[in-house]
């Protein structure tokens, strides 16, 4: 693995609430290497989304520091893009699928170049034939793929994904998981992928970080040593997969 893209040095976020100040996440130290797939798993209310927003530059750390390629993060960094959980709110409903995907690049490149990028991105997520539809004409899984394509069109170095498949059915979810792994191989993008689904975290991740407690802290980071390409049936039956699953459930406190 090459050099690190993100580095958190005991970063934390404390928010002022009506009941006084409340620490949301604390003492976060972790590193993301280029082309790495890092999944972050944890129960609800442990600050997973806050951690992701911090990495995406939407919520500045109130203690510690976050470095992007060695520089202190100030606002949303270049080459880093967030894919939100609620695709229906995150897509621009008045734009066609193609125009949504073009949103992040249409101002910075020529029409021809932009069209080519949009075609490539839609091709990667398998939605080339729906380019002229509007988001509300697509299924939930397709809408989330549009959001992923919109992020991919930027050719980002890092994609930050906030429980992107939480609202989808199991079959759609499995398909999209495999699509992400394929995308990582094709594009060498790094992923930070938040989920509350332990199996999903193990299946996708090179490493799994466990966020737990209140304020949320990184309690464990587990290297996932499972063979690639991963397969929805055989990988999930491997004794090693089941052992990771067991260990992580235990770490979160389900055992």
């Amino acid at each position: 693995m090459a050099d690190s893209v993100f580095e958190c040095r005991s970063a934390g976020i404390t928010l002022p609430l009506r009941s006084g100040v409340r620490p949301i996440i604390a003492d976060i130290s972790l590193e993301l290497k280029s082309a790495e797939f890092l999944t972050i798993v944890g129960p609800s209310g442990t600050g997973k989304t806050t951690l992701l927003r911090m990495l995406g530059g939407l919520a500045p750390p109130t203690s510690g520091a976050v470095l992007v390629r060695g520089e202190v993060l100030a606002g949303p960094p270049e080459g880093v893009v967030i894919v939100f959980q609620d695709y229906a709110n995150a897509l621009l409903q008045w734009r066609s699928v193609a125009a949504n995907v073009a949103f992040g690049i249409e101002r910075t490149m020529s029409r021809a170049q932009c069209n080519e990028r949009v075609r490539d991105a839609l091709n990667l997520v398998g939605l080339l034939d729906r380019a002229d539809d509007f988001p509300w004409q697509l299924s939930g899984g397709m809408q989330q793929r549009v959001q992923i394509a919109r992020a991919l069109a930027l050719r980002p170095a890092v994609m930050l994904m906030d429980e992107p498949f939480a609202a989808l059915d199991a079959m759609t979810k499995a398909g999209l998981q495999d699509e992400l792994l394929r995308l990582r191989d094709q594009t060498k993008v790094s992923f930070v992928f938040i989920t509350h689904d332990i199996e999903e975290a193990v299946y996708l991740g090179d490493r799994v970080a466990v966020l737990n407690g209140s304020p949320g802290r990184i309690e464990h980071i587990v290297d996932i040593d499972l063979p690639f390409p991963r397969d929805q049936i055989t990988t999930r039956q491997l004794p090693a997969f089941l052992a990771y699953r067991y260990d992580l459930h235990k770490a979160i406190g389900h055992a």
């Binding site: 530059g57 939407l58 949303p76 270049e78 880093v80 609620d86 709110n89 621009l92 930027l154």
Partner: peptide, 13 residues
């Protein structure tokens, strides 16, 4: 307008 739209604008810088 949903606050997420503001987030989208920001993540696209």
């Amino acid at each position: 307008a949903h606050p997420r739209l503001n987030d989208v604008g920001r993540t696209f810088r």
